[in-house]
Computed example of a mutant assay.
Amino acid sequence: MPNLHRRVVLAAGLGLLAASTVRAAGAVVRVDDPRLDALIDPAAPIRTLFDDGRWCEGPCWAPGLGGLVFSDTKANRIRVLADDRSVKTLFDPSENGNGNTLDGQGRLITCEHRTRRVVRREPDGTKIVLADAFAGRRLNSPNDAVVAADGAVWFTDPVFGITQPEEGILAEPEQGARRVYRVTAPGTPAAKVEAMTDALDQPNGLAFAPDGRTLYVSESGASLNPEAGRAVMAFSVGADGRLGPPRTFAPIEAGVPDGLKVDGAGRVYAACGDGIRIFAPDGTPLG
């Protein structure tokens, strides 16, 4: 598992390069729980692998595409970072792409701000629209996506891409809420877009626990409204895929949580304003 852990931390960290301020030199690992020592060397340094992005988002480890795929949202392109640290552009323009993930067949799924839709890239380059509307109205600006064990695509739909000038096209929301959605049988005639919860102000990153019984979602409402929420929330997932009521998994006192990853042991990695915060499955801060 060490390589997986390294890549998860790298993936979460990449999303911060363009979004955070430069931190002072010195120690970069804060240990809140001794269990962190089994995961990260407290003396580990940060190595910058790429620093030419305007607003890096949506890291996704995709060996079939050449390495770590990520969106440079404000630059309107999607790029890939190879093991040899070379970087190439996959898609330009990217429709202000943000979150990326892979389905079970290794196909890239991307949330596009500019078109306000979720799309899938086929092996021949064809782009299939998985979701662009709900209840007859356009989505806000899909932000991040994850694929469940049954192949359904889950995604968040805050308003960042229609309220931030460089992240999409300014527009009034057509949806009455910012929701988490699920697309069943994506890309087929039987596909259905379902609203799973509207409990969060601005849902952002999302990830499933290894057993699929918990869905973690970043509440990033405070980025637009200081009085709104800033926490990693958790929902129980029923046998039918329906969500239980939200509970606060990890409060965030500074900035807001953005991208989320979960490793094979169930630890949750949250990209936050002050770094990558890591939590045990029970919500204990590890560091």
Rank of each mutant, 00 (worst) to 15 (best):
E95L: 14
S218G: 10
G53K: 07
L139A: 06
G66N: 06
V237L: 05
N204L: 10
L65P: 00
P226G: 00
D282R: 03
I78E: 04
D51H: 10
E122L: 13
V232L: 09
P226E: 04
I46M: 11
G273F: 09
D72K: 06
G283V: 07
P158V: 00
R85Q: 14
S236P: 08
P281H: 06
W154A: 02
E112H: 10
D124P: 10
S223W: 09
I278P: 07
D240P: 09
E57H: 00
L139H: 05
D211Y: 01
A191Y: 03
D201Q: 11
D84P: 06
A271V: 03
P173T: 09
K192F: 05
A148G: 13
G104F: 08
E174N: 11
L139G: 03
T115A: 13
K88C: 14
R230C: 12
R137Q: 15
R30Q: 14
E253L: 12
V80L: 08
G136S: 08
R137L: 14
V232W: 02
R247L: 07
E253I: 07
A254T: 15
A254L: 11
A222Q: 09
A185V: 05
P285I: 06
V80R: 02
D51T: 07
F160I: 11
S86T: 14
D32M: 11
I109G: 04
V28S: 15
K127T: 15
A38N: 11
T73H: 01
